[in-house]
Design a protein around this nucleic acid. Structure first.
Lengths: 88, 88
DNA sequence: CTTTTGAATCAATGACGCTTGAAATGAGGG
DNA sequence: CCCTCATTTCAAGCGTCATTGATTCAAAAG
C-alpha cells in the first residue's frame, strides 16, 4: 500500500460526519433512512459522505427494494479494532 | 475525544509527504536537514508539513544549536503500533 | 401507467489546504 | 559586528472538498 493510498484512506476518515457514520454502522447494517434519523444532515449531504466512504472502500452498500443498506467493509472493521485500544 | 478532534487527527495523516515524514521519524529523532536529504521537497514545504504534524500533536520539535530535531510524539507511536498489524 | 418514496447525482458557491517564491528569524562562525 | 547556514514565516495562486438547492434515478404502490 503506497503513501498515496494510505493518505487517501486517512482523508476519507478526516471528516466528523463520516466518522459519525462509521460509528453508527459499527453496530450493524443500517439503511440510509435510519442513518438519516440519527445523524441529522441533509439527505444529499449524507449521500455524498456515504459515497466518499464507499469509494474509499470503508463501507459497502446493498440495495433492498427502495432502500439501500450500508455496512462496514472488512478493512474498516480492522481499522476500528486496531484503533480501539487508543483513546480515539 | 470528540468527532472533530478525531477528524483533525486523521486530516494530519492524510498527506503522502506527512506520512513519509512519520515513517522517517519512526526510527529515531532526526534533524530537519537530514529529513531534507531523504524526502526531497522544498525546505519551506517540509517546514509547513512539520508544522501541521506538530500542531496535530504527532511530532515534537527540539532546537539544538542551529538545527531542529523532530521525533514522534507518544500518540503517534501508539497509532503506528496499533496500525502495524493492518497492511497499511 | 402514474404517483410516491428513498436515494443519488448535478451545478454552483465558499472555504480550506497544498505549493511556490520571497523574506524573516535564530544561532553560530570568522 | 557581519556573514552564513538552518529553519520558519509570509503572501499569493490554485486546486480540491464540503455544503446547498434543484434535478434525476430506481423501485414499489395504487
Amino acid at each position: 500500500m503506497t503513501l498515496e493510498m494510505r493518505a487517501d484512506l486517512f482523508a476519507a476518515l478526516s471528516d466528523p460526519i463520516r466518522l459519525r457514520i462509521l460509528d453508527e454502522l459499527g453496530g450493524c447494517k443500517t439503511c440510509v433512512c435510519d442513518l438519516q434519523q440519527t445523524i441529522d444532515v441533509a439527505p444529499n449531504l449524507l449521500s455524498y459522505h456515504l459515497r466518499v466512504l464507499r469509494e474509499a472502500g470503508l463501507v459497502v452498500a446493498t440495495r433492498r427494494g427502495r432502500w439501500v443498506d450500508y455496512e462496514l467493509a472488512p478493512s474498516a472493521t480492522d481499522l476500528i479494532t486496531a484503533a480501539s485500544p487508543l483513546e480515539l
